[in-house]
Design a protein around this nucleic acid. Structure first.
Length: 308
DNA sequence: AAACTATACAACCGCGTCCAC
DNA sequence: AGTGGACGCGGTTGTATAGTT
C-alpha cells in the first residue's frame, strides 16, 4: 500500500536502532522528507541514511518533526475539547486530534493519561465544567445532548457544516455509531505548497505549473501527506483563506516551508473528503466562504468520498 | 547530597485494515 | 481468493526530569 515495486526492492536486513532520537537523526529525517517526501516509509530510513525502521521514522515525523505542530501546554479550550470529544468518541485519539490543530493523537493520549483522566475521576473538579456545558448534568450525557454537532461547535469553535440543522442525528445513535459525529474528514492526497501570497518565486510558480520545469518542485509534488487533514491545516478562527491555512497565521515562502520555519503557509491539493453522512455541499459552502475562492467548483461525488 | 518516587512524554508493540500482486 | 507488506491506531512501556524524603 503506497509503495511501488521499485521502492520495495533491495531492502537490506539491518539491525534497527531503538530509543530516543538524536538531533542528528532528526536532522537527517527532516531534511530527507522535506526534500523528497516520505513516499514509502520503509524506504525512508534507507534513503535518509538512518538505522531506524520505517515505522519509527513515521512516528517521529508525525509526532515531533512535522511542520505545524504545536508544542507546550494545552489551553483551557483544548482541554474542554478533549474532554467533550472523549465523552462522545471514547479513546479515539486520532479522531479527537482532528479537532485540535497542531496536536497529535499521541500528545492528546498522553495528556489524557497524565492529567485529564485523573481530573474526570474527581467529580467535584469537573462538576462546574459539566454544569457549564450541559444543562442536565445529573443524567447520562449521551441521552441528553440535543445535537452532537452543536456540542462539537461549542467546544471547539468549529462549524463543519455551516449550520447545525443540516444534520440530524438521533441522540441514541451516538453510542451506536460515533463516526457520524465527525465533520467530513478532508485528506491531503498530495501535500502541495502552492504559493506564497506575498512572494511568488520560481519554485512556487513551477509548482503551480505541476513542477514541469523544476525537478525540485516536481519532487515536491510527490510529497505524500495524506496524514494531514484539513481541520489541522485550515484556520477556522477567522483568518482569510489566502493566509494561514497551515500555521494559522501569516504566510511563508517555499524556502520557509522547506525549512519548516515559516509562520504560515498556504496549501492546496487534490483534497479528498470523506463523507461521513454529511449533507452535501454544506462543507463546500464553507470552503467558498472566504474572499478568495480556493476550491474550484467541480466536486466529484462518489458514494463515500468527495473529491475536489 | 543521595536515594527514592511521581510525573510527563517519547517511543515501541501488536493488531486490524487496506491494497497490490 | 489468498497472501504479504505497509500503514494507522490505540495500548503499553521506557526514560528523563522534577519533586520529596
Amino acid at each position: 500500500m503506497g509503495c511501488n515495486s521499485m521502492e520495495k526492492i533491495s531492502k537490506p536486513k539491518q539491525k534497527h536502532r531503538k530509543g530516543l532520537w538524536s538531533p542528528e537523526e532528526d536532522e537527517k529525517l527532516r531534511n530527507y522528507i522535506l526534500k523528497h517526501g516520505h513516499g514509502c516509509w520503509s524506504s525512508v530510513p534507507i534513503n535518509a541514511g538512518l538505522q531506524r525502521n520505517g515505522k519509527s521514522c513515521r512516528l517521529r515525523w508525525i509526532n515531533y518533526l512535522r511542520p505545524g505542530l504545536k508544542r507546550g501546554m494545552f489551553s483551557a479550550q483544548e482541554e474542554e475539547t478533549i474532554l467533550n470529544l472523549h465523552r462522545i468518541l471514547g479513546n479515539k485519539w486520532s479522531q479527537i486530534a482532528q479537532h485540535l490543530p497542531g496536536r497529535t493523537d499521541n500528545e492528546i493520549k498522553n495528556f489524557w493519561h497524565s492529567y485529564l483522566k485523573k481530573k474526570v475521576a474527581k467529580p467535584e473538579e469537573v462538576e462546574s465544567f459539566s454544569k457549564h456545558q450541559f444543562t442536565n448534568s445529573n443524567s447520562n450525557f449521551q441521552e441528553d445532548v440535543e445535537s452532537p454537532i452543536k456540542l462539537i461547535n461549542t467546544v471547539s469553535g468549529f462549524h463543519p457544516f455551516g449550520n447545525e440543522e443540516g444534520l440530524s442525528i438521533e441522540s441514541n445513535q451516538l453510542s451506536a455509531n460515533s463516526q457520524t459525529l465527525l465533520p467530513p474528514k478532508i485528506l491531503f492526497a498530495e501535500w502541495l505548497t502552492i504559493f506564497d501570497s506575498t512572494n511568488n518565486n520560481n519554485i512556487d510558480n513551477d509548482i503551480f505549473n505541476n513542477g514541469e520545469n523544476n525537478p525540485q518542485a516536481n519532487q515536491f509534488l510527490h510529497y505524500n501527506s495524506k496524514d494531514m487533514d484539513f481541520t489541522q491545516s485550515m484556520d477556522f478562527q477567522g483568518q482569510g483563506f489566502n493566509q494561514g491555512l497551515m500555521y494559522n497565521e501569516g504566510s511563508c515562502s517555499s524556502e520557509e516551508l522547506y525549512s519548516g520555519v515559516g509562520s504560515g503557509c498556504v496549501f492546496d491539493s487534490q483534497l479528498k473528503f470523506e463523507d461521513q453522512t454529511t449533507p452535501e455541499n454544506e462543507f463546500g459552502d464553507l470552503l467558498f466562504s472566504g474572499d478568495n475562492e480556493i476550491i474550484p467548483n467541480d466536486f466529484v461525488m462518489s458514494n463515500n468520498l468527495r473529491y475536489i
